[in-house]
């Protein structure tokens, strides 16, 4: 008996990435820098979120030649993004052989109502979530990994903190809710009762939970790990800084030893005096229509 594409092997790959940093890259050279810095995986993209935000227009799945060249450049797993609900883009990425598909709000949604039915795929999916209900809906559709949405390309950690706290607090609350209240909780969360019960019993999501959207310094990574993230996605934070190699390595070190402030000090110092994290955006000045996190629910 040999069975591929099972829930166990899909969720399993996410479990192997725990405690690690997944970096956005737009060229094979950047992918090699990321691997050399200790990234556990790379996200192959045409444009990083900060540039998608600046350029405007429709953001789609990346050029597949580019994705292939990044797959050829590294030995670590390669992820790539599809638009929310765009199952044909996902079919293409699966056929190409990427290791993980991110159904991502960073790209322009293809379907305003429905996400991809991810159980139909052999390739595992990661999806963004702002709260527990959203996370459990994505898991019900077959997501093998969840990441906080944060606000991609903003360089601002505030939304990632909000989403991570929201998910973790809601789970913590569920663990002390009496059994007879779970149906009503499931209704309020808009999530299947079975998954709500599973989260209540285990005190955690049934899949790995990473943080994404706004991490730009070693201290940001340590903050999110202490808030309960099991690993970190860094998008614009590395290749929009003035020293990508140093930032990549420092964020990896801080993610590994997130509970040791001395390591955070050493990692931050290793960036050098002239180090500048990406500029970042004060999200309070951003109109609702420009927020990526509200795409998909």
């Amino acid at each position: 008996m040999t069975e591929t594409g099972t829930i166990t092997v899909k969720r399993g790959l996410a479990q192997m990435l725990k405690g690690g940093v997944i970096m956005d890259v737009v060229t094979p050279e950047q992918a090699a820098i990321a691997q050399d810095a200790g990234a556990v995986a790379v996200m192959a993209l045409e444009r990083i979120p900060a540039d998608i935000r600046a350029d405007g227009g429709v953001a789609r799945m990346s050029n597949l030649e580019l994705v292939q060249s990044i797959m050829d450049a590294v030995t670590i797993p390669v992820m790539a993004k599809v638009r929310i609900g765009h199952f044909a883009e996902a079919q293409a990425l699966q056929a190409l052989g990427v290791d993980f598909i991110d159904e991502s709000e960073v790209l322009t949604p293809a379907d305003e109502k429905y996400h991809v039915s991810k159980h139909l795929f052999t390739t595992p999916f990661v999806c963004g979530a702002r709260d527990l209900g959203e996370a459990l809906r994505r898991i019900a559709e077959g997501a093998a990994m969840i990441r906080s949405k944060g606000e991609a390309g903003s360089g601002n950690i505030v939304e990632a903190v909000r989403h991570m706290r929201s998910i973790r607090d809601a789970i913590k609350e569920l663990t002390v809710v009496p059994e007879e209240e779970l149906t009503a909780r499931a209704r309020d969360l808009g999530a299947p009762l079975e998954l709500v019960r599973e989260a209540a019993r285990a005190g955690r999501l049934p899949v790995v939970l990473f943080c994404a959207g706004g991490v730009s310094t070693p201290a940001d990574a340590a903050l999110m790990m202490q808030l309960g993230a099991e690993g970190i996605f860094v998008g614009s934070g590395i290749f929009k800084s003035n020293s990508p190699k140093a930032f990549a390595k420092a964020i990896v070190d801080a993610t590994t030893h997130f509970e040791d402030p001395n390591v955070i000090v050493a990692a931050s110092k290793s960036l050098g005096k002239g180090a500048q994290a990406m500029a970042g955006i004060d999200l309070r000045n951003l109109p609702e229509s420009e927020l990526l996190a509200s795409r998909g629910n």
Partner: peptide, 27 residues
């Protein structure tokens, strides 16, 4: 292979007894 070839396999491991082991191979 890559992740699409990751698999669950009933693996004979004589040293652990006759029952095959549910082995999970990931990349």
């Amino acid at each position: 292979g890559r992740q699409n070839d990751s698999a669950e396999v009933a693996l004979p491991i004589p040293v652990l007894g006759a029952e095959p082991f549910p082995a999970i191979f990931i990349r």
